[in-house]
Design a protein around this nucleic acid. Structure first.
Ligand SMILES: [Mn+2]
Ligand SMILES: [Mn+2]
Ligand SMILES: [Mn+2]
Ligand SMILES: [Mn+2]
Lengths: 229, 229
DNA sequence: AACTTTTTTTAGTCTTAACTAAAATTTGAC
DNA sequence: GTCAAATTTTAGTTAAGACTAAAAAAAGTT
């Protein structure tokens, strides 16, 4: 019932495959190579290996991209849970800011014990989201559906609440913070310009005109929509 | 001015060489192999490599054992500082007990950033000793002389204060804890039996008869001795 | 449909850090 | 001082995971 070991490298491959495929499609060799900072030839080699593991971790057919098996998905979610709990805990317990935590978590995620995981989870009160608003998989590795919509879909007259931001770049994160676009922030859409896709919003007292570069990276829940189906 | 990288393996070798040689002598291939859980042949290979690094990390002559160079010593102390700060912090901040922290620290020590080191150091109030009483090297990697004496040297009529325990085995650590032999504990020697080296001591209300297995692993400061020379 | 470009895979190398087995050296007993 | 035992080193493999260069397959273009 216990899986033996997965190297750091294997864990990183699985994590990135998960992130590329969470919404159905399969991940390409090239896309993985780019995310992992590795050459495509190296990715092919690893994918063959992952598909040949005893319980196979991926389903892989030449030239067709990969998808995670149930086992691979569980292993990926285990790493993602580590990553996000660590981020939350670096912020809450050591005073890191949200633009500093990713890099640190990237290394710690591979070496903490399950005991450590349990302890920070408990110390944080079993949080459901990390500092960027990403959902933290449960201890049972369950992953609730993400119901957020990109801010780019918000139109004048409607308002919304920021759920999460999709960004790792520290400069972008600091910029979003300076705009007040952090999880929980209330937003009102004031104007939309169809030609350049600029959206004018109000956050608290402040007004901002945001381009797609930003509005596609901030995910919100529209106000006045049912939470459940 | 920045050293590039040292792999986890290199860091572990340096750390164990430091621990074997802190009091002058040089470390043998076999002793290192045992501590590192590796075959002697592997140790020889690594020692050659460490001696050949650009600033050499060890001084090594065939069949003569190794000693750290100044550079190697600094790298070792960096890892040891990480290890001991992490142990302290696992205990104080996450409620670990002193028998659980070593294993976790063993893995974390290699991956935390200098920023992380600074933050836990500050959060703990710049501690000078880890949960086992081991001295934590300073941020400048200075290492104060350890002035503790083994409990086995205490004789009836004298009393002492526990400074540190030399143990990693969780069972031994729990046993020491149950005896009250933790850093700060006051001890009074009541009786000594020269033939079996048994020492009878009082700790608080309790009396214990301890053999060499324990008395050589608990280090104390004798009461009524000057701290400075 | 044929050809060009892009993507992916194969084949072969390299590095790190282990291992085993055999050779060499040192230690220690007499 | 000689010789056996213990320790250490050399030599040659192995495994993981990266790389480059060349071959093959897929996708796009006219
Ligand atoms: Mn990682
Ligand atoms: Mn995050
Ligand atoms: Mn270690
Ligand atoms: Mn310790």
């Amino acid at each position: 019932m216990k899986k033996p070991i997965a190297t750091q490298s294997v864990q990183d491959y699985l994590k990135h495959i998960y992130e590329l495929t969470e919404h159905g499609s399969s991940a390409s060799t090239g896309a993985l190579a780019q995310r992992l900072n590795v050459k495509p030839a190296s990715v092919t080699g690893m994918l063959r290996k992952l598909a040949a593991e005893d319980p196979p971790l991926v389903e892989y057919q030449k030239h067709q991209g990969v998808m995670l098996t149930a086992d691979g998905r569980r292993a990926a979610l285990e790493v993602i849970r580590h990553h996000r709990l660590i981020e939350a805990w670096l912020v809450q317990s050591l005073g890191y800011s949200w633009d500093e935590v990713h890099e640190e978590a990237e290394r710690l995620e591979h070496v903490i014990s399950e005991e450590f995981e349990r302890r920070i989870d408990a110390a944080l009160g079993h949080p459901t989201r990390d500092p960027h608003g990403e959902i933290i998989p449960g201890a049972d590795l369950s992953m609730p559906e993400d119901e957020s919509m990109p801010l780019s879909a918000l139109r004048p007259g409607r308002s919304a609440t920021v759920l999460r931001v999709l960004a790792r770049d520290p400069n972008l994160l600091r910029h979003l913070d300076s705009l007040g676009l952090t999880p929980g922030a209330r937003i009102e859409a004031l104007d939309y310009s169809p030609f350049d896709n600029n959206l004018t919003i109000r956050v608290g007292e402040k007004m901002h005109v945001l381009g797609l570069n930003i509005t596609t990276k901030v995910f919100v829940r529209f106000d006045g929509e049912s939470h459940k189906d």
